[in-house]
Design a binder for these strands. Structure first.
Lengths: 337, 337
DNA sequence: TTGTAGGCGTTATCAG
DNA sequence: CTGATAACGCCTACAA
């Protein structure tokens, strides 16, 4: 079996015209008025559909010096926040005739590999989400003519548009809220990253504000799988001096905490308060509904627009999009105490 | 700002050699023995790293007639099953020096667009998961020299390797199990697709086996969002003649049903039985733990291997990988009755 | 209104 | 051992 991708030349032969004519018909727009007679136009289109012709991307991109593709780089799947983001970006990109592919990094190694791919022009633009890329690495991408938008609170770089959130401030408020309500043994589940973790920083700062000491045994690295999370929390709740509140880096972990608490016979919020992060829709239908911290808006259209805008106009000044996060009070923290 | 992607030519100039020499150094392998003196070799590598040269993908692919890329096509994100799949495939592909990108289809429209992309050689191989592509469309891909592996129970085509599951049989067993336990008003949540839905077929067949009539009001199209699912189930449970069992097409929906039941004051499994599908890890930590139907194994390495194998050897006979699904009995169906 | 030709950056086949 | 050089398939300025 031979791969028989028809070429422009074959279409031209089939239609009995030159390749340039075919190209004109297909690409339409060209400088000034390149009109094609309706007759040849039809013949060309006929030939195209007969052969099932479709232009070769590599050739087109080589010639045009652009891929008409965007790449969203995610650390991993399974995060609702990312899923919404991908949907919105894909929708907006589509309107602007860009295709979207997703690359998964996961490990630092894989991250480097994706960086390579991008350097080699996998796409014209990148939306890098929460990765561990350094400013230097990102700037190298920009230097090779790739538009970069970064969703990250810690990293930034020249020529890179950034989407930042006020999440750390919201985390701080959340912890303070727990402390105000009288909770004292607050467990904090953080996510390991290369840089600093906003959750942890907010946690420490809040304890400081209330002049409370840090208990290291309450600072817990979030396990990978949900089941492992459940087991870790269960263990935590069964120990001698159990925490009276749990602050987590994700709503999924928080919901898991709700399950673990129920199974351990603890009442939420009276025996145990829980605060999540991310404000996923599930949080509204747990019982009690989940008090959480999350973005005030989940519309990522503007992020996509910003990326595409830079693509069209690479020399414009760098921009920062600030997204408000807020404490969303529902039912998993007690009001009295 | 100009995009300054250095080219082979520039590297050659910098190193004071011809572009051919640079190519030899970088690609190493070539017909017979093309040795390069260590001296020039070093000079070339020096120049490469000085300029930060990295070969242009489009040009390379155009010349080589391959992209060294695989594409996983998913209907949407947010499905744990897909996420595991992606991880496994990415891991295996990486070993074989293939890159992996993910494309999202969602709508039928988007599906066509991705098909276009693939036709234009977005990738050398496709793993199409649960889409609505017709055999014809897929065969067209194969005809243009793209390796296709399809995970689908209903579709197949010439030259296309297929991964099928025995899920419909397992669904049938699940419904029969409910009926055997004495449940009679079983609600079935199905997922709309273009073709037939295995869940629905299994449901009807099981009712048939037990000589029971089909109650259309118990056949329910699964809403999009989890919150909408919750509301739909709540409504269902509060109606006059409520169902005494729920069979769902996904564990997430089943877990949502657990929540809705709890909030409606119903005991699972005594007042309401629930069976999910997919066997996600969360099912083990709900209370009661979720009875479900799912794949006996969640290792997708062999799927990736099959795809890569076909890439390397396109003319081999078509293969079918059959993956066993089974009923996993836990705590959401009553034993007595 | 249509055709010709040159080149995008690589690779690979030839000679030198 | 190294250097020209011809494709790969497409686009487009320029010529006819």
């Amino acid at each position: 079996m031979v791969s028989t991708q028809p070429t422009l030349r074959e279409v031209a032969k089939q239609a009995g015209v030159s390749i340039a004519t075919v190209s004109y018909v297909l690409n339409g727009r060209t400088s000034s008025k390149k009109t094609i007679s309706e007759a040849t136009r039809q013949r060309v289109l006929q030939a195209v559909s007969e052969l099932g012709y479709t232009p070769n991307q590599s050739a087109r991109h080589l010639r045009r010096q652009q891929t008409e593709r965007l790449c969203i780089v995610l650390p991993r799947l399974g995060v609702p926040y990312y899923e919404i983001l991908c949907q919105h970006v894909a929708a907006v990109a589509e309107q602007h005739h860009y295709n979207v592919v997703i690359s998964l990094t996961g490990t630092r190694e894989k991250e480097q590999e994706v960086l390579q791919q991008l350097q080699r022009r996998l796409a014209d633009g990148v939306l890098a989400v929460h990765g561990d890329w350094t400013a230097e690495e990102l700037e190298r991408l920009v230097a090779s003519g790739i538009a970069v938008t970064l969703m990250h609170n810690e990293t930034q770089g020249r020529g890179i548009d950034i989407v930042q959130t006020t999440e750390e401030e919201a985390f701080y408020q959340a912890i303070c809220y727990l402390l105000q309500q009288g909770y004292r043994r607050i467990a904090c589940f953080y996510v390991e990253r290369f840089g600093r973790d906003g959750r942890l920083e907010a946690y420490k700062r809040a304890l400081n504000t209330f002049h409370l000491p840090l208990d290291e045994t309450l600072v817990i690295h979030t396990p990978e799988s949900r089941k492992a999370v459940y087991e870790r929390i269960t263990q935590l709740l069964r120990q001698e001096e159990r925490p009276d509140a749990i602050f987590t880096g994700s709503d999924n972990v928080a919901i898991t905490a709700l399950w673990a608490a129920q199974d351990a016979g603890l009442n939420v919020p009276d025996d145990l308060a829980v605060i999540g992060s991310g404000n996923i829709p599930e949080g509204e239908i747990t019982s009690p509904p989940l008090t959480t911290v999350g973005p005030a808006s989940l519309d990522f259209g503007d992020v996509a627009e910003m990326l595409i805008d830079r693509l069209r106009n690479p020399d414009q000044p760098q921009r920062i999009l600030l997204r408000e996060w807020e404490l969303i009070i529902r039912g998993t923290v007690s009001d009295k105490k």
